[in-house]
Design a protein around this nucleic acid. Structure first.
Lengths: 192, 192
DNA sequence: AAATCAAAAGGACATTTGTCCAAACGGCAG
DNA sequence: CTGCCGTTTGGACAAATGTCCTTTTGATTT
């Protein structure tokens, strides 16, 4: 459920240590703070060094939907930079987060000067599309119990970091439904 | 609902006409034929010149979920090429389709030799992520009636091309539920 | 025109999920 | 220790959606 794949992080940390790395800056975010705000412009991309964030879409009807939990090596803000759009979600630090960030202009310069970065990003984006699409399909096509089990398997270790409300928002259901599904999973498997 | 954005198509059609274009081939698909098969390897990318396709995920429980309808200028197969994975969906021609296709090796060569192609693809992918994510969020967070209205607005002109089953599969609901939602939209707005 | 077939529409009932609350629990400030 | 507040849990009922079928419609063939 949380992708891990060191290649982007490796690229930027090497760069950061080199003479060409002046454009790569670092920043910390405390638990609960927003890294990106829905509806606002995004002026730089972020690469998470460590920590966990959640990407939350706030719908007009008041519901929050969690797109993904992101962690180490994940890139943020690139969608908005590439298409020059405002952000469609909030990105909030669940734990303390350390991240590299590079402003738009410098980021484009890096793309010009580092061939390999283009491929790394193409791969990262292709992966995001795939994961997002697969999840959408599964969540739409299966009952809550099924989706919940999948989620619990993948988030077993981080589970304590997520509130029940977060899990419900990730599954696109209400807290009540989540609780019902959990108790059916454990206790009474729904009397036939 | 169907992205249109000429830049990729323009790039490949120019290339196709030039001396460097030997790697760009063309192919036609009749209505109902598959361009890409779920679970199979993908050996080339496709760029649609014209026609409409649907991208369908077949879930293990027998349900079909339509990820997107693709049309002119859309690229297919790039996710699988970049991450070397099998396809997670079927891509089927809804109308007759004409497409360029480029095999994996040649595609990577084009990326090497045409700087601007990298950016075009990064933009295209960023767009796909964004659209996919936004749709997932909306469909999960709103009732059928709301999603149906949005869909009807965007597909007003192509509507006749889509069967009711297609629309239901796009919305991730059953045909019965779609019919109910449609008749409530028109006729009786659900007695209070 | 009659027969045939697939797509579309909808009735009746079951199941799932949401809404609205109230009760229990757990950490923490005073 | 006590009170407070946010999180978690779950009851009771309402609304939405799915399942299973039958009927209707419309195009096509014979």
């Amino acid at each position: 459920m949380i992708r891990i794949n060191q290649e982007l992080l490796t690229f930027f940390s090497k760069l950061s240590g080199s003479s060409a790395g002046s454009s790569v800056m670092e920043k910390r975010f405390a638990t609960g703070n927003n890294i990106i705000n829905q509806g606002k412009h995004v002026t730089s991309v972020f690469i998470i060094k460590n920590g966990i964030v959640k990407c939350i879409v706030n719908e007009e009807n008041g519901r929050d939907f969690i797109q993904e939990f992101f962690s180490q090596d994940e890139i943020l803000g690139e969608l908005e930079i590439f298409n020059n759009t405002i952000s469609f979600c909030n990105v909030e630090a669940i734990t303390e987060v350390e991240a590299y960030h590079i402003n738009k202009k410098d980021f484009y310069a890096l793309l010009e000067n580092h061939r390999e970065l283009n491929i790394l990003l193409l791969r990262a984006l292709a992966n995001k599309v795939r994961d997002t699409a697969i999840r959408a399909s599964q969540q739409q096509s299966h009952p809550i119990a099924y989706n919940l089990q999948k989620l619990l398997v993948f988030s077993a270790d981080q589970a304590r970091l997520f509130s029940k409300q977060d899990l419900a928002n990730y599954l696109g259901i209400t807290l009540r439904s989540l609780n019902r599904a959990i108790s059916e999973l454990n206790g009474v498997p729904k009397e036939s």
